[in-house]
Structure formats: C-alpha cells, structure tokens
Design a protein around this nucleic acid. Structure first.
Length: 150
DNA sequence: GCCAACGTTGGC
DNA sequence: GCCAACGTTGGC
C-alpha cells in the first residue's frame, strides 16, 4: 500500500467535481516522471488531492486508486488539448489511472500550513521549485496531513 | 499578470 | 552531448 499526492487546478477539475463524478480518469499528465509514478500506483493506494493555482493552494481531500494506469485516451484525440501527435496506439507515451472520491477534508489544508508543519519538511511538494504534479508521500506524511484535515 | 524554476526541443 | 531558446507550472 502506497501513498501519493496529485495536483489539479480546481478551475479545471476540483475535488467537488470528483465528488459529483465519484470516479475520474486522472488524464492529461504530460510529464515523464509523473507518468512513471502513476504507473507505480496500485489498486487501493490512497492519493491526496492537491488544488494548485488556487487561492489558497492546498490539500482538499483523499482519493483511492481503483484502476491501475492504462493508455491515456486524450493523447489520441486530435481535438483534445493534451493531444500528442508523437504517441501511437502501438506505443502510447502517456498513461492514467482511475481515481475514486474517498473524502473531502473538513478542514482544507493550505500550502502555508503544510510548510509550517513539523514532519513534512521532506514532502516533495514543499521542496524548492518542485513542479511535479504526481509524487509519492510517505505513510507518516500521509497520516500527518490526513490528521490535519479531519 | 509577473516571474522563477524547471522540462523539452532542436541546432550544432 | 551541449546548451540556448522556448514553453509550462504554479506561487504570489
């Protein structure tokens, strides 16, 4: 069982959208390192939902992996903004898992609160210049954050 | 909207 | 393989 953090801009797709949809394809990720992490996700893994480019940015809740990564359909769709002409059906570049709504935190945890929390110093999100949209979180870090949101 | 940090592309 | 130019991310 592993833990992760995944970012989305709430204007694009927020935790409330996911609550309504129940399950979503975590598609559109076009960064190799983030893709590799998504391919490591196993069914049942828990994922923190981070609102980026928001006011304020922060962690909004928890999702669960319900389907392991498969080729991201948006890479083949010419009309999609994530279309990738270099990707073929035989050799897809991009993958996405399906994530299910687990819960929305009673207490939204802002980025500045995360920065001020002991034990989260190594969280990749908080490292200088980190822009990685999907990354692992340790069990301890996950527990600290969930504890703050409850 | 600004801009620093980072990733990707492509000429050489 | 280097690296400048360019594009994107994301906090502020």
């Amino acid at each position: 069982m592993n833990y992760w953090l995944a970012k989305s801009e709430p204007e694009e797709y927020s935790i409330d959208d996911l609550k309504k949809d129940k399950v979503c394809h975590w598609d559109g990720v076009r960064n190799y390192q983030a893709r590799n992490y998504m391919r490591e996700m196993q069914k049942g893994d828990l994922v923190l939902f981070y609102h980026s480019n928001a006011a304020p940015p922060g962690v909004a809740g928890v999702m669960k992996v319900v389907k392991i990564a498969y080729p991201d359909p948006s890479q083949f769709d010419k009309k999609d903004k994530h279309f990738d002409p270099k990707s073929t059906g035989d050799n897809p570049r991009w993958f996405c898992p399906d994530l299910k709504f687990e819960r929305k935190f009673k207490q939204f945890i802002s980025l500045s609160e995360l920065r001020n929390t002991k034990g989260l110093e190594k969280l990749p999100l908080l490292q200088r210049g980190s822009r990685l949209s999907v990354h692992p979180v340790s069990k301890r870090e996950f527990e600290i954050i969930v504890g703050m949101g409850t």
